[in-house]
Design a protein around this nucleic acid. Sequence first.
DNA 1: CGCTTTTGACCAGCGC
DNA 2: GCGCTGGTCAAAAGCG
Length: 308
Amino acid sequence: MDYSSLVNTSLDLNLNPNSGVNEEIPKKEVESNFFALELKSFPSRQEANGDLEEELKRVSAENKKLTDMLTEMCDNYNTLRNHFSEYMRKNSNSEKEMSPPKKRKSESSNNNGNPTGADGNNNSESSSTDEESSKKPRQEIIKAKISKLYFRTPASDTSLIVKDGYQWRKYGQKVTRDNPCPRAYFKCSFAPSCPVKKKVQRSVDDQSTVVATYEGEHNHPQPSQMEATGSGSSRGLTSSSLRPSPPKVTVDMARSKSFNESTHSLPKLDSSEVPQVLVEQMATSLTKDPNFRSALLAAISGRVSHKN
DNA sequence: CGCTTTTGACCAGCGC
DNA sequence: GCGCTGGTCAAAAGCG
């Protein structure tokens, strides 16, 4: 059942984790809306006054209750987010200590040679043991600020394209030993000014899950955002190559095995990426969750039906 | 025509 | 030193 056909369930969720909850505006909106509604319903103003006051009180009380619930929800969310960030920090530390046995040197030694220096991300992780990185003669050494994201795509989709909002240029594909599905290598279209690379490969035991491993940090906003601000004029960013709509990142971390299976490497999220990705994901999850929507619908319809 | 994708070749690290 | 493997390069093909 699609509730959206009955009620506009588009949630104007606050996606900015830093800005807190605005409790005043919705309250005023509700009150004014109801006031306007009631004025139409009662032709006689005197007759309406008593009922209006009563209704106003009831709505105010209900609104307060909803506000409290929302506040509580936001508190819970913030707590959860803090726990998540803390968890990611701990995880990245522990993973740094016990690197996989068959990692290649260039990857495990977390080298620090940002080719352009434009990125400027001086995370302390990379400063430990990279004397050997200077021996790498040939290729530019990308600062390995690695994050792993899990995307869900149809198993039939073999394109290995994940819509994360950035423009990527594929530069290689390889079948690896431990996974029959080919691994695709991408560079950010802003390269060489943007050193970010990503590897995309289907999960070996869940074909509908695509694992995207990001290395480095973007030193530019998302192309879609640049387009919105009118500053997207870089090479390789023709209007046709830009995605027409804001990226719908279908990250489903809750379903990613890493949360359930300790044998898998846990998704390491760049600490700066965590809020945005997480918040978007939570908002998406909430709006898609039928339980949440039905609860919301029930709350709204309950309020409406009280009037009748 | 310019950009992207494909794909085989090449290179470097690692284990034996 | 050799073979295996992951990662990258670069020419060719494809596409708009």
